[in-house]
Amino acid sequence: MLKRTQKFVLIFLIIYFLMITWQFFIAAKSEAGLIPLKGKAVDISVMLFFSIQPNGWNENIINLVILLALVPIFGAGLLIYFKNNNMFSAVQQRIGYHGFIKAGIIRSFIIGVVFSLITNLYQLALINLFYYPFFFKTRPIKLYIGARPGYFSTNQLIDLCSYVILSAIGWGIFAVLIFSIGLFVSKNSIYLVLGPCVGLGLTLLSFIISLGNEFLLFLSYLWFPFAVLAPGQFALDSRLPPINSYLLFILVALLYLLLAAYLIKLWQQKRKLG
């Protein structure tokens, strides 16, 4: 069983990183005309990095769906499998409900953070090695808003670091949320697609509600998953977030954590009542 699982993990990791590499070379080819002939220092590498992020002009929805699925599966998939099968009683006797929940939260968060960091660092390495070396500068505010809808900073180095760090934390929080929902899922096959279903479902709901007035726009951003998964990248229905992007990240992250805590508490009470 362990060898089969290891093969499964290895195959999907290879497929995932091949998809990322393919996405990069497609994007680099489409933006090749921006590379200066005489080696002039320009900021095209930063622009290419954000172009392959969610909602970027070179994004790949397949990569996104794969990541939405892999992070929860690799994080707590094995624990959910134990819960849904006869092995759960043995796990519960050995570590108890508290240990089971603690392991699920920690593993989910760490895997989410690590997956996001590795993905973004790999993309940065590909760009630096095979496209153009990174060069950072401060861009005019108007130009920056025009390039990316929900911005953090007009300094590209600070913005790049903010995005990579916050996105990693956001993926960890999202993975914890999926784990908490997965506690109520009795079918392993459903958990395999739970990440994409929840992520894309919340995204669709946010886009629909954002079509209303300013208050509804604010509400739609509060549960919008990409406010934490890809902070600063989206403007719902071409309408900017009504609050600062840093504050929006904090609010959505807190909402997801509170919801996860409530679901975990509810599941524990349900198990105790039999």
Rank of each mutant, 00 (worst) to 15 (best):
A168P: 03
L257G: 03
A261M: 11
S167I: 05
N155C: 01
G195W: 03
I15Y: 04
F88E: 13
G77M: 02
N155V: 05
T203H: 14
N63I: 10
I141G: 00
P36Q: 12
L157S: 00
S51E: 07
L229Q: 08
L177Y: 09
L258K: 04
L37F: 04
I95Q: 13
S189R: 11
S30L: 12
Y221C: 10
R139T: 11
I264M: 12
V9E: 05
S206A: 14
A227S: 15
K3I: 10
Q233R: 10
F25Q: 05
K29T: 14
S210D: 14
N155M: 03
V71P: 04
K187H: 10
V252M: 10
I52L: 14
L2S: 09
L34N: 14
K187M: 05
W22T: 03
L222T: 15
P54D: 07
Q123N: 11
L34F: 06
I127G: 13
L160I: 00
I26G: 01
L263Q: 09
V46E: 11
V91I: 15
L78P: 01
R271P: 01
A147H: 04
N120E: 04
L121K: 01
L222N: 14
F218V: 09
A253R: 01
P196T: 00
F12T: 09
A227L: 09
G33N: 04
Y16H: 09
F234Q: 06
K142G: 08
K83W: 02
A32Y: 06
Y132G: 08
L205P: 04
K142L: 12
P242S: 05
L2G: 15
I209Y: 05
S51G: 10
F17I: 03
L258H: 08
L13F: 03
I243Q: 03
I250R: 07
I190G: 00
F215D: 12
Y122S: 05
A90G: 10
D43A: 10
I73Y: 15
K102S: 08
I66L: 13
L236S: 07
F136Q: 12
S89K: 13
I101F: 05
I62T: 13
Q233T: 11
F136I: 12
I173D: 00
P149C: 06
Q6S: 14
R271A: 15
R139C: 01
G33H: 06
L236G: 08
G199A: 13
A260S: 15
Y221S: 13
C161T: 02
G199Y: 12
Y221N: 13
P140E: 15
T138G: 11
Q269V: 12
I173Q: 01
G182C: 08
K29E: 13
L205C: 13
A147R: 03
L121F: 12
Q233K: 10
A230M: 05
I243R: 02
L263M: 14
L64K: 09
R239C: 01
D159G: 09
I44E: 07
K142A: 15
S108V: 05
Y81S: 07
V185G: 09
P36A: 08
G56C: 05
I178F: 07
H98T: 15
A168M: 09
A227F: 11
L157N: 00
Q23A: 03
L64R: 08
S210T: 07
L13H: 01
L236T: 09
G112D: 01
S162T: 09
I264C: 07
P36M: 02
F100Q: 08
I243M: 10
V114Q: 02
L251K: 12
I158S: 09
L126A: 09
L124A: 14
D159V: 00
S220Q: 07
Q6R: 14
A175Q: 02
